[in-house]
Design a protein around this nucleic acid. Structure first.
Lengths: 324, 324
DNA sequence: TTGTATGCGTTATCAC
DNA sequence: GTGATAACGCATACAA
């Protein structure tokens, strides 16, 4: 009957359907900036399962500005998205919590709120940093600088805490000067290197807040004539695509970003489909130390070098996962 | 009257409004893969103006597979997006054209369809490649290899044509072996280097299909012990963020991607608001040669090196724009 | 200005 | 099963 008419170009309106059924099959994704290399992998993972489950993604850039984030969240709510993914967003302020209160189901990635009952996908950053610190200690480093990520970021705080634990354990120097309060940007790495290298006693290694940040350190080092790893070891966190490039060859901690994005989307969709509200679930992915050429024994520590047997090429040491 | 009730959490439904007004204030963006570094900058530019104009972005990954693209396009149409941005997508096949026929306004980025009357935003790739070829010729290169992007890409074809013109002009060798049919991937660069270097007479320089592709060449060169630029000059196209990193330091052709994204969104919105249909408009951005450390005179051409005065640091030569 | 009815294109409900 | 009808939440047109 209507088959004939339908064949000739008719397509049901998803808008009308959304109004009628009260579900839009749209998922909002909030992030600081798509063009920051830290994020696209997560987005891709989210889209992988969203697409498979018939959902579309609404992308919002917040530039890490809470004001913009609130605005975009409101927009997504107005659009009646079925769910939201908050990728490394502000999650603790009263204004954000108030909006989340009236928001559709959501899941957090890379910014936890221990005090709240949210769905969360993250990675075992503490173990990752611990492995990294152990690696540097093995190489013989005792004067290790640390670039702190955004102060309000729970992940950045976790990393720092894990660093302090390791620092104590291995007897690293703990001058306040060896900690730079920065963020995840490349510029921040640039600035940090400048500060660290102008110290009376510069560090022999730097742990950056993440890979993008570490790229800034590497760039600044190259410009300043500081050789890596001969004069200075540098490590990052993330294992972005570039980190493995031979020209960069950055020791870092890998976290499976695309997988994490997938998991977040799955968690979210599950939550969206759930009839009754249950406790927030956390999925923590294991991290893995990826040893590359940017870390080596410190100068004048030739002895220590012998302690470390470089196997064939690069080595990846996996850390146990804490799944909950 | 209603002010009171409104204050207590009421928010108009964008879904209902969309149904009623027949405009969704959503723009669909189709791209191969967000996690490919070539794309996020464009997306960011699109979002800049979309956001300012009250539109939201629906993101779709097509993996450069026409089948997926068609599917996503259909989804966007079903969702009644007000417009679509086709970022380096298939645009010539009958199936795609048929869908575009019934689609809302759209704009093409980085894949032109001269035979159709579409809105288009691109960059002056020909001039860019011409400048690059001239640069290599100035350095003394006469045996220059070329990695061809996806065969169906109009941009890739443009680049190749411009290359052949320059090749003839400067009397470069024109062995068929010096052209590798590849794509924009890093792997493609890897493969190309292997093939070129195993030639009886390897090239002294390689022009990659884009920066990501060039990164693959650099990586493969590093692994194969081919020194850049001493043994081989390498150039890319795009000027992605990493290209300027001191460790990469890639000579390339810059195109203002974020600006192009912005222009595309503006063009699209203009088209969406237009009452009568007008001719398709093309906006071509100028490109600029960015000379960095990955290109140098070929071995045994010390004389030629003198022809080129490296000014201070890096030099950027701007090319005139063709605006239409 | 303020109020009331109608329709956007679906899905769901109800009667047949 | 098949077909008519209401309702989703707005905007608009029209009446008051």
């Amino acid at each position: 009957v209507r088959a004939a008419a339908s064949r000739l170009g008719y397509r049901a309106s998803a808008v009308a359907r959304a109004l009628r059924t009260q579900q839009s099959f749209a998922i909002g994704v909030l992030m600081a900036d798509v063009s920051n290399s830290s994020f696209p992998d997560f987005v891709r993972g989210i889209e992988d399962v969203a697409q498979a489950e018939g959902y579309n993604l609404l992308l919002c850039n917040t530039d890490d500005v809470e004001e913009k984030q609130l605005q975009e969240m409101q927009t997504l709510i107005d659009r009646r998205v079925d769910g939201m993914v908050l990728l490394s967003q502000h999650t603790r302020s009263a204004a954000v919590r108030a909006l989340l209160e009236v928001a559709p189901p959501y899941v957090l990635i890379q910014r936890r709120t221990a005090s709240f009952n949210d769905d969360y996908v993250g990675s075992d950053t503490r173990s990752g940093i611990a492995a990294l610190v152990a690696h540097l200690a093995d190489l013989g480093h005792r004067r290790v600088a640390f670039i702190h990520g955004p102060v309000e970021s729970s992940i950045a705080q976790d990393k720092f805490q894990s660093f302090t634990v390791g620092r104590r354990r291995y007897g690293f120097d703990s001058d306040p000067d060896l900690v730079h309060m920065g963020d995840y940007s490349e510029e921040s790495g640039h600035a940090a290197l400048g500060r660290f290298m102008s110290l009376a006693r510069p560090p022999t290694a730097i742990i950056a807040s993440n890979d993008v940040n570490a790229l800034g350190v590497l760039a600044a080092a190259a410009k300043a004539g500081v050789r890596v790893p001969e004069d200075l070891s540098v490590a990052g966190f993330d294992d972005i695509a570039l980190a493995s490039h031979p020209r960069i060859d950055l020791t870092t901690v890998r976290q499976p970003k695309r997988e994490m994005g997938r998991a977040a989307a799955q968690l979210l969709i599950k939550r969206m489909r759930a009839k009754r509200t249950t406790r927030g679930k956390e999925i923590i992915f294991p991290t893995a130390l990826v040893t590359r050429g940017s870390t080596a024994p410190p100068r004048g520590q030739v002895g220590a070098a012998k302690l470390v047997r470089r196997t064939g090429g690069r080595s990846i040491r996996r850390r146990a996962a804490a799944q909950s």
